[in-house]
């Protein structure tokens, strides 16, 4: 009962946070304006236009990216059975940053036929690198978690060096700052037509793993015991990996690589509901989204109008909270 209450509480907070977020921006908007913009949208009214076309997609993107990263982190920690895992151990983030940086710096195309290419190159970089890491991390059709971890770390370090090189070689100060925004995350390019991809990805993933939750929980006991308990370990791991790749890929392609949310939110979730509660996955995604919206709002309040790169805020808020959680709760991963 207590768990259900927590869940409803978080859901309520998401709504509240979104409403608060809608009131913040360059145009002054009262809560009446927001209600009117949502219920009787008038595109010729500048305030309505800003709320519906600019603020709402930005908040939704933060919600989806936060949700996707937190959910991916949860899966990843379960898969490699390691409390330190996050969605980026597959090299996704460094691949995406590298793709974007190469495009921004003009080393490959920046735009083509009116299409702005950095997000596409980020997506390509994310998937190519993830595939490479997976290729290095499996043997005889089986994912070997420890090998996958090491491959991810090795490839990421290599790509970080490459990213450094392209950052160094990029011509202008503006390009430099743009690359920084990419590698620390930014929701500034949010747009309605971009939202369906991460939304569909997250919805499908949540639906899928809602049915596989039992397998997930058994995997936490270790692969050998999972096999004896009848869990198709290899197949489950492939599914998890595919899901994490797609969700993380979309997230970093749209918002850059926002750090920390994928690491801490799964821990917060388990701290709130316990190790194996059936609402864990859903709550994890919601908490991730809530946290990300909050960080985005905070970043814009501290440094208006465009906000600080979001990764700075997530670390500033996330890390102390994480440490507090570790110290306060007698919380264990498994």
């Amino acid at each position: 009962m207590k768990q259900a209450f927590i869940f409803l509480m978080v859901l309520f907070l998401v709504g509240l946070m979104a409403f608060w977020g809608l009131s913040i921006g360059s145009f002054k908007a009262s809560y009446t304006d927001i209600m009117q913009a949502l219920l009787h949208y008038n595109p010729d009214n500048q305030v309505h236009f800003a709320i519906v076309q600019l603020r709402l997609p930005r908040l939704l993107l933060a919600l989806l990216v936060g949700g996707s990263l937190a959910f991916s982190g949860y899966l990843m920690q379960a898969m490699v059975n390691n409390a330190l895992a996050d969605p980026y151990i597959l090299g996704t983030a460094s691949g995406a940053s590298l793709g974007a940086a190469m495009s921004i710096g003009g080393f490959i195309l920046t735009s083509w036929g009116g299409l702005y290419l950095p997000p596409l190159f980020a997506l390509a970089g994310a998937f190519l690198v993830t595939l490479l890491v997976i290729a290095l991390g499996y043997r005889k059709g089986q994912i070997i978690p420890s090998q996958l971890l090491l491959a991810g770390i090795a490839v990421s370090s290599f790509l970080t060096a490459l990213l450094g090189l392209f950052t160094f070689l990029s011509g202008s100060e503006s390009a430099l700052r743009s690359i920084l925004f990419w590698s620390m995350g930014d929701f500034g390019r949010a747009d309605w037509h971009l939202l369906p991809y991460p939304a569909a990805g997250l919805a499908i993933a949540l639906g899928l793993f809602f049915f596989l939750q039992k397998e997930l929980n058994i995997l936490l006991l270790g692969a050998e015991r999972a096999v004896t308990l009848g869990v198709p370990v290899a197949r489950t791991r492939w599914l998890m990996l595919a899901t994490v790749s797609v969700l993380t890929g979309f997230s970093v392609a749209l918002a850059g690589s926002v750090g920390f949310v994928g690491l801490i939110i799964p821990h917060v979730t388990r701290g709130l509901l316990g190790l194996t509660h059936k609402l864990n996955l859903l709550l994890c995604a919601l908490l991730g989204g809530l946290f990300m919206m909050g960080c985005d709002i905070l970043s814009r309040l501290i440094y208006p109008p465009a906000g600080l790169p979001i990764g700075i805020i997530t670390s500033f808020i996330g890390v102390p909270f994480f440490v507090y959680l570790l110290l306060k709760k007698s919380y264990k991963f498994n």
Binding site: G25, S26, F27, F49, A50, L54, F181, G188, P305, A306
Partner: peptide
């Protein structure tokens, strides 16, 4: 000296 602006700020 060269600040980053949001679309909303420029609309305003």
């Amino acid at each position: 000296p060269y600040p980053a602006l949001t679309r909303e700020y420029i609309l305003k």
